[in-house]
Amino acid sequence: MGTTLAFLLSGTLLAATPLLLAAIGELIVERSGILNLSIEGMMALGAVVGFATIMATGSHWLALGAGGTAGVALSVLFAGVVLLALGNQVATGIAVGILGLGLSGLIGKSYEGMTVAPMKRMPIPVLSEIPIIGPGLFNHSLLVYLAPLLAVGLWWMLRSTRIGLVIRAVGESPESAHAIGYSVLMTRFLAIMVGGFMAGLAGAFIATVSATLWSDGLIAGRGWIVVALVVFATWRVDRLVIGAYLFGLATIAELLVQGMGISVPSQLLTSIPYIATIIAISILSMDSRKMRLNSPASLGRTYNSTA
């Protein structure tokens, strides 16, 4: 029972970490007013580039960095089309996502079905000795701890720093932000780069830290869950963290319950995050005052920064 509970915690963290990482990035992007629907493709490209890197170098950290960089590379393309060529964000996101999936399949062909050694864990002294909670929460690889810390940092940045203010202002109304002298173009460009890095990092995390293998289709729709998470969180960091861990918890709990010999309607369970997201966004949007508070009003709208 103890090990089961410990796994409920550790499995939740492991499943939620890549989602949280990518969602942190996507939240920044969306807060700046850009809807990036290419997360799935960016995660896939990050995963395969990360995997190729670890095969070549054996280093997990290089792999994670390379995965993030691959995400950035794809983001440059996305940003160029959306910001400079003033392309429709939805269509561009889908197109870049398809490109990312295609390239990942192409690069990954020679790594199909291969495995790598897992990343070294970093048990936290003292805390990891506590029964159940120790192995559950405090015996992981560094990124697992880092993800929630990054979220806290993001929360603080959006709330209390000038950069956060600029991002929010640009997402709220690029026209006003421009009028008071903020560079809409630069802000959005940087936000998209961060978003791409985080998505690539999340993909590389799955390929080299949690699953430790590559196969075409490895991301299996997790990029869309990330998009759902950000909306479910109604663009708030605290809800994002809760949402990511809740989602991870639901995934793991379903498997544990099945293992106990209780059958579960797994399709319904898989649908719950999406249904919850629809409900969340409906409730939030109903009250236009509340909506104003967190949602980037210009989300998805093309802004001509040359005019």
Binding site: T3, F7, S210, T251, L256, Q258, G259, M260, G261
Partner: peptide, 26 residues
């Protein structure tokens, strides 16, 4: 004997979670 049906032909990450869940159950 404990069984987990993952209901997919292909989702390596989920298959691994299922395996870990079973291992944690002894």
């Amino acid at each position: 004997i404990r069984i987990v049906w993952v209901n997919t032909w292909f989702d390596p990450a989920r298959e691994q979670e299922a395996a870990r869940a079973l291992i944690s159950q002894g």
